[in-house]
Simulated scan of single mutants.
Amino acid sequence: MRVEMLTVPDCPNGPVLRERLALALAGHTDAEVTEHVVDDQAEAEQRGMHGSPTLLVDGRDPFAAPGTAASVSCRLYRGTDGRLGGAPSVEELRRVLGTPTTGGADRAAGRAGQGRLAPIEGGLRAVQQAVLRSFATTGAPPEQAELEAAADPFAVPAARVLAELAAEDFLTLDDTGRIQAAYPFSATATEHVVQITGGPTVWSMCAIDALGIPVMLGTDAVITSTDPVTGDPVRVEFTGGSTTWQPATAVVHYGARPGTGPAAAVCCGYLRFFTDRATAEQWTGRHTDISGAVLDQAEAERLGVDIFGPLLAAPAR
Rank of each mutant, 00 (worst) to 15 (best):
M1P: 10
L6S: 04
N13V: 01
P15V: 04
H28M: 15
H28G: 08
T29Y: 01
T29N: 02
D30E: 11
A31L: 06
E32F: 07
T34N: 12
T34A: 09
D39S: 09
D39E: 14
Q41A: 08
A42Y: 01
A44Q: 02
H50K: 15
H50V: 13
P53L: 13
L56V: 05
D58G: 00
P62K: 03
P62N: 04
A64L: 08
A65Y: 03
A65V: 14
P66T: 10
T68N: 10
S73E: 14
S73Y: 09
C74T: 10
Y77Q: 10
R78H: 04
E91D: 15
R94P: 04
V96I: 05
V96A: 01
L97E: 04
L97S: 07
G103Y: 12
G103W: 10
G110C: 06
G113M: 08
Q114K: 14
G115Y: 10
P119A: 10
E121I: 03
G122N: 10
V127F: 05
Q128E: 12
R133Q: 09
F135D: 03
A136D: 08
T137I: 01
G139N: 05
P141M: 09
A145R: 14
E146A: 10
A149R: 12
A151N: 06
P153T: 04
P157T: 05
A159S: 09
V161S: 03
F170Q: 02
L173D: 13
T176M: 00
R178Y: 06
I179F: 02
P184W: 14
P184S: 08
S186M: 02
E191F: 00
V193D: 00
V193G: 05
V194Q: 09
V194M: 05
I196Q: 11
T197H: 11
T201K: 07
T201V: 12
W203K: 03
I208Y: 15
G212R: 02
P214I: 00
D220R: 09
V222W: 00
D227L: 07
V229Y: 06
G240H: 02
G241M: 07
S242W: 09
S242P: 02
T249L: 03
A250Q: 08
V252K: 02
G255R: 07
G255V: 03
G255C: 04
A256V: 00
A256N: 10
P258V: 15
G261P: 06
G261S: 05
G269N: 15
Y270L: 05
R272K: 10
T275P: 03
R286F: 00
H287S: 09
A293S: 14
Q297D: 08
E299V: 01
E299F: 01
R302D: 08
L303V: 06
V305F: 13
V305A: 11
F308V: 01
G309L: 11
P310C: 11
L311W: 07
L312C: 13
R317V: 11
